[in-house]
């Protein structure tokens, strides 16, 4: 079914054209359990470093 473009869609598309968009690979990494376990550790370490720096 051909969907009609509402003014909302047109506005959204015009904005979206120049926005940086993630590739499918980047998107899949965001919810890849193994990769995210690694990121969980990395982000926590980064946060702990800043928390330590902020409490000193």
């Amino acid at each position: 079914m051909a969907t009609e473009k509402t003014p909302f869609d047109q506005g959204r598309q015009a904005q979206g054209v120049f926005a940086t968009k993630p590739t499918d690979f980047t998107k899949s990494l965001r919810t890849n359990i193994l990769w995210q376990m690694v990121r969980f550790v990395v982000i926590n370490i980064k946060m702990i470093k800043v928390i330590r720096k902020s409490h000193s």
Binding site: F40, K46, V50
Partner: peptide
């Protein structure tokens, strides 16, 4: 060196 941002499932777990 300390300013950082990332989006992902790990953030949700945190």
């Amino acid at each position: 060196n300390h300013t950082f941002g990332e989006i992902g499932l790990a953030g949700h777990w945190i």
